[in-house]
Amino acid sequence: MVWELTDDVEAFASTSDDFLRSRPVEHTVFLTLVDTLRRRGLHAYGSGAPIFGQWRTDDGAVDGVLLQTPPHPMMFSRLPGGAVAAALDALAGRSLPGVNMLVDDAATFVADWPAPAAAEKMRVRLYRLGELTPPSPPAGTARIAGPGDRDLLVRWFSEFAEAINDVAEESPGPVVDDRLAYGGITLWEVDGSPVSTAARSRPEAGMVRIQMVYTPTVHRGHGYGGAATSAASRAALDEGASEVVLFTDLSNPTSNGLYQRLGYRPVLDRVVMEFSS
Rank of each mutant, 00 (worst) to 15 (best):
N100K: 05
L126P: 07
G64D: 00
F76G: 01
A161R: 12
R234A: 13
F76W: 07
L180P: 03
E169M: 13
W188H: 01
R265T: 11
D104C: 09
M1L: 08
H43D: 14
T186L: 14
A118R: 07
V9N: 03
A13M: 05
L262Y: 04
D7R: 15
D35V: 05
G146H: 11
G223F: 02
G257L: 02
A139E: 14
D58M: 14
R56G: 03
G41D: 02
R78A: 11
A139I: 02
L250C: 09
T215E: 10
D59M: 10
N165F: 06
M273D: 03
P114L: 10
G60Q: 14
G82L: 09
W55D: 02
A145Y: 05
S22T: 14
F247C: 02
P172T: 06
I210K: 10
A111Q: 03
S193H: 11
P50T: 00
A145T: 05
Y45E: 04
T215M: 07
E10H: 07
A117E: 13
V29N: 01
V84C: 11
G183V: 04
T141R: 12
L258T: 04
W3V: 04
Y45N: 01
M75E: 15
T28V: 10
T15F: 03
L268Y: 09
G221A: 11
E159G: 12
P116H: 10
G93R: 06
D178L: 14
E274D: 15
V25T: 02
G184T: 09
R143I: 08
L42D: 13
A228D: 05
A90Y: 03
S136C: 05
M122N: 01
Q68Y: 07
A115P: 01
H43I: 08
L20D: 00
G93W: 12
R155H: 14
P203A: 08
R179Q: 14
G81Q: 14
F109G: 00
L126C: 07
V176C: 10
A161V: 14
S77I: 11
V99T: 08
A85S: 13
A11C: 10
F157I: 03
G48P: 09
T215A: 09
D269Y: 15
D105Q: 05
L5I: 09
V190Q: 04
L246Q: 01
L250R: 04
S158G: 15
D59W: 12
R143M: 12
F30S: 04
I144V: 15
G98T: 08
A231I: 06
E189L: 11
A90V: 04
L268W: 00
F12C: 00
V84Y: 06
N100A: 03
L132G: 13
L152H: 06
P70R: 06
P137R: 15
R143A: 12
F52K: 02
E170S: 14
E159T: 13
S158N: 14
K121S: 12
G64L: 00
T15D: 13
N256A: 15
W156Y: 09
D18M: 08
H72D: 08
F76P: 02
A86N: 02
A90L: 08
L5P: 05
T15G: 10
L237D: 00
